[in-house]
């Protein structure tokens, strides 16, 4: 399968291991990710003001690029990019007047016709069937909790799963052979961008999310958002007195391990190194 791929800024920087492992996995699964030419930052947050079309231009311009490539779907990894692109997409699909205004403003581009769908990579995997994944190195003995956070699931219109009772990541991890436990903080916001201006709020959220996960027996937390990753991982630096280190992993990293792909794991880019845990479980080569 060939599909256009929208990386977003953070997948090229602090979340490089997320991209690298997904690329390695995709190759094995026969998913050809076509990185979009001239993609631009989506803006990271969807603008919620009724009169603001200016901030909808960036996501829609990316969808025009997909259209130009001759495809009607685009996949992305970052939860924030997914959310922003698809919310903007649904806005213009449902409001021809706004779409027309934006199209005439972007007169250097071809008109966007509203024919593109944004598909999160997890959805793509689910479509292929988690049970069909060629798992070589099952994650036996590893107990994990999925952490969904906000933007894969909310608002409801763009949710990749049931917004209050999601199971998609749990299903994937179970198919990889891991023991998956549920925990009550799986949907709770980590404090998001307040990591910049209210760091203490994010530390508090991180403490609650991780201590709840640990109480349920989790040895690692698995997620899909580079901002959640930073908050849950790097903010542990300020919680060393309160919390034993908890490794935070992108789902694609565990997928790579389970498929026996060890070359691009990028664990050196984490604050809490997941390697000792995975070694202890005999999961790394």
């Amino acid at each position: 399968m060939k599909i256009p791929y929208y990386p977003g800024c953070t997948l090229k920087t602090t979340a490089k291991p997320f991209e690298d492992t997904t690329k390695a996995v995709s190759e094995v699964l026969g998913i050809e990710l076509l990185e979009m030419p001239r993609w631009n930052c989506c803006g990271t947050v969807y603008s919620l003001a009724s009169d603001d079309l200016m901030h909808q231009l960036a996501p829609i311009r990316n969808l025009i690029r997909v259209q130009d490539m001759g495809y009607d779907r685009v996949t992305t990894l970052c939860s924030m990019c997914y959310n922003t692109l698809e919310q903007a997409n649904q806005l213009v699909k449902g409001d021809p007047e706004k779409l027309e205004k934006m199209n005439s403003f972007m007169d250097q581009e071809k008109d966007y016709t509203g024919g593109v769908t944004v598909v999160h990579y997890l959805t793509l995997l689910k479509e292929m069937g988690f049970d069909s994944l060629p798992v070589k190195n099952p994650l036996k003995g590893l107990t994990v909790v999925p952490y969904y956070g906000c933007l894969l699931l909310r608002p409801e219109e763009i949710s990749i799963d049931n917004p209050e009772r999601p199971t998609i990541m749990a299903e994937l991890l179970a198919a990889l052979g891991a023991t998956v436990v549920d925990h009550p903080y799986k949907l709770e916001c980590c404090g998001s961008y307040h990591t910049v201006d209210y760091k203490e709020v994010v530390c508090e959220k991180t403490y609650h999310i991780l201590s709840s996960a640990r109480k349920r027996g989790a040895e690692a937390v698995v997620l899909s958002c580079p901002l959640c990753e930073f908050n849950l991982d790097f903010r542990q630096k300020d919680l060393e007195q309160e919390l034993a280190p908890m490794p935070i992993l992108y789902f694609s990293q565990l997928l790579a391990v389970s498929l026996g792909l060890f070359d691009a794991l990028g664990f050196d880019q984490h604050y809490v190194d997941p390697e000792p845990l995975l070694k202890e479980k005999g999961l790394l080569r």
């Binding site: 800024c9 953070t10 979340a15 803006g43 990271t44 603008s47 961008y193 910049v196 901002l227 930073f230």
Partner: peptide, 18 residues
């Protein structure tokens, strides 16, 4: 130090909201 460490998504979203 924070600027070096923070992911682009954190900075862009915070500046957009604040």
């Amino acid at each position: 130090e924070e600027l070096r460490e923070l992911p682009p998504v954190a900075l862009v979203s915070n500046f957009r909201k604040c």
